[in-house]
């Protein structure tokens, strides 16, 4: 279970203070699909970044497996990002010089040890699952926008994480491609993966088990 308690986050830029999160609470149960909606500047992406440990909150607790991850050392945070948490961004952020398959395997290319056969088989299975079987050798530049986003989802899936964070995963896709991504997320949820998705699209948000609406840095 993932639980956020009284999360506060303030940004200071050129003398301007922005209260991005003003005491947000959220609980995500195992296998639950939660979507967070709100207007631009409502703090939903900041909240997702804090939940996924990519951004440290000013105060508050994020409990995962009973432990407060905000007090984790850099090494433990890395471990959490390596195994338990996966993030899909609005932009795919694929490395342009690696093939689709190598991009999927990127989480396993962290050290000098060669990527295992097992990981390679899992990467092929993930590519197949996102409908890209046979396209593993293509570089991102030779794939469509939808395909690139699906490679990014396969990269998130390959680690077999327990929580998937998705920040506007359909934001840059046409309706048809967006639809296929949403179907994929629904499948993953059915497989028991917890999903926290940020979106400004009410129709997609409604497909989640629960919709959280944010405004001015707070859940409304």
């Amino acid at each position: 279970m993932l639980e956020a308690k009284n999360i506060l986050k303030t940004f200071h830029s050129e003398g301007v203070v922005t209260h991005a999160l003003t005491g947000v609470d959220l609980t995500v149960n195992p296998g639950e699909f939660v979507s967070i909606v709100g207007r631009s500047g409502s703090g939903k992406t900041t909240f997702l970044n804090v939940l996924s440990t990519l951004l440290a909150p000013d105060s508050g607790e994020i409990l995962y497996g009973g432990e407060d991850v905000t007090s984790f050392s850099a090494a433990r945070l890395n471990q959490l990002r390596q195994k338990d948490f996966s993030v899909v961004f609005q932009f795919h952020y694929l490395l342009p010089y690696l093939s689709a398959r190598e991009n999927v395997l990127l989480p396993y290319m962290r050290g000098l040890a060669p990527v295992s056969k097992d990981a390679k088989l899992r990467a092929d299975a993930c590519l197949e699952r996102v409908g890209l079987a046979g396209k593993g050798s293509k570089i991102p530049g030779h794939l469509s926008g939808g395909e690139q986003q699906r490679v990014a989802i396969a990269r998130a899936l390959v680690k077999e994480s327990t929580v998937l964070f998705a920040d506007e995963p359909t934001g840059n896709l046409d309706r048809e491609t967006g639809e296929s991504v949403m179907e994929l997320l629904a499948d993953l949820k059915n497989d028991g993966l917890s999903i926290v998705m940020v979106t400004h699209d009410d129709e997609y948000a409604a497909r989640a088990d629960r919709v959280i609406r944010m405004a001015d840095g707070a859940v409304v």
């Binding site: 996924s52 990519l54 850099a74 090494a75 890395n78 471990q79 959490l80 990002r81 390596q82 195994k83 993030v87 961004f89 932009f91 952020y93 490395l95 990127l106 989480p107 962290r110 990269r155």
Partner: peptide
């Protein structure tokens, strides 16, 4: 910088 951010989000160490 994007690549670096992505790799760090995947658990790459400093």
């Amino acid at each position: 910088i994007k690549e670096i951010g992505l790799m760090r989000s995947l658990g790459f160490s400093r």
